[in-house]
């Protein structure tokens, strides 16, 4: 076990998108997406998910005990996985610069806080973020493809993506076409992801499934596979803009899909849980899910992210409490 994290967690390595075009060795699955019929047959042939059993398992894992030293390590790990996010209609250059300031110096009084993984903004504000974060290791991520609904023409989605990448986004969070998915037009969803991936160039692609609109866990598993087959670097739970976002159970389904996909293809796909994760306790619960489903190899910002805005401050407050024994409260962390 590593020593207490007073020495600061080692700086997380930068994201490692697979080389473009490298989709792992899919073997028999190489042409599974050759038509909607084959794709449909494959996705519907995946093992089903029993909702009761899944939720029970997620709940048991939620009761693992992470305290004191292990909590300190877990909090630093969680901070290093945060995609600090602001996705509001009211976002302004000033707001984004302030967010970037927070990303660079999460806790002004404390120097050993690990940096967050990325700042996530809308495409038109990517340039502002890139400028504000210049010279740092914090990546700029941008949502794209008519986020959050995904209801736009393909040309617009691709242009959205290209502009964000051109402005300097290193990571693109795209949304899938849930309408097409629910209509059974899997091939269309697949092709769109492939096209966006091409438009990303060297940028890292996270594919948002929007679990809250897919509703069933079977759908979440199918959509995860669909995205991975199409070349996603990450699968992401949700936009944060609908009623149900990341839950331990729907994230667990995605982690299991990633595990199965890795077994088959040898390719390691990341997972991002986003929306509704507000407390350090919640965040640690997700780390436990990752740990017991995918293992240590995924306990890195390269393979697991937490998309959140208010989470960071709770992590900092808990960190402060562990370090000093006193809970400072919200007045002792910066609100940006």
């Amino acid at each position: 076990m590593p020593g207490p994290a007073g020495s600061a967690a080692s700086p997380p390595a930068p994201a490692d998108p697979a080389a473009p075009g490298d989709l792992g060795d899919l073997g028999d699955l190489a042409d599974v997406a050759s038509s909607n019929a084959t794709l449909r047959r494959f996705l519907h042939g995946l093992p089903g998910v029993d909702a009761v059993g899944l939720e029970a398992r997620a709940q048991v894992l939620g009761s693992r005990s992470v305290k004191t030293t292990s909590k300190r390590l877990a909090i630093d790990l969680a901070i290093s996985m945060v995609d600090l996010t602001s996705l509001e209609g009211a976002d302004t250059p000033g707001r984004v610069r302030s967010l970037c300031g927070k990303a660079l110096v999460p806790d002004p009084g404390v120097r050993d806080v690990p940096r967050v993984a990325a700042v996530c903004v809308y495409p038109d504000l990517v340039g502002v973020a890139v400028e504000a974060l210049a010279g740092s290791e914090v990546a700029v991520a941008s949502v794209a493809t008519a986020f959050p609904s995904g209801r736009g023409p393909l040309e617009a989605k691709l242009a959205d993506t290209r502009l964000a990448v051109a402005a300097g986004a290193a990571e693109i969070d795209m949304v899938i076409d849930r309408g097409a998915f629910l209509a059974g037009d899997y091939r269309r969803v697949f092709e769109e992801i492939v096209a966006v991936r091409e438009a990303c160039g060297g940028a890292h692609l996270k594919v948002i499934l929007e679990n809250g609109e897919l509703v069933t866990y079977d759908n979440v598993r199918r959509a995860s596979w669909l995205a991975m087959l199409a070349g996603a670097d990450f699968v992401k739970t949700s936009t944060g803009k609908v009623a149900v976002n990341a839950t331990p159970a729907n994230t667990l389904v995605m982690l299991q899909a990633v595990r199965d996909f890795f077994r088959l293809s040898g390719r390691r796909v990341g997972v991002k849980a986003a929306g509704g994760i507000r407390t350090a306790k919640d965040a640690i619960r997700y780390l436990v899910l990752v740990n017991e489903t995918l293992g240590e190899e995924w306990l890195t910002p390269r393979r697991f992210r937490l998309g959140a805005s208010s989470l960071l401050n709770d992590l900092l407050m808990q960190r402060h409490k562990l370090a000093t024994g006193a809970y400072g409260g919200p007045d002792y962390v910066t609100v940006d």
Binding site: S70, K71, L287
Partner: peptide
Amino acid sequence: MLLEYAAAP
């Protein structure tokens, strides 16, 4: 171990 559980007797 990156994520060690604390004994919680």
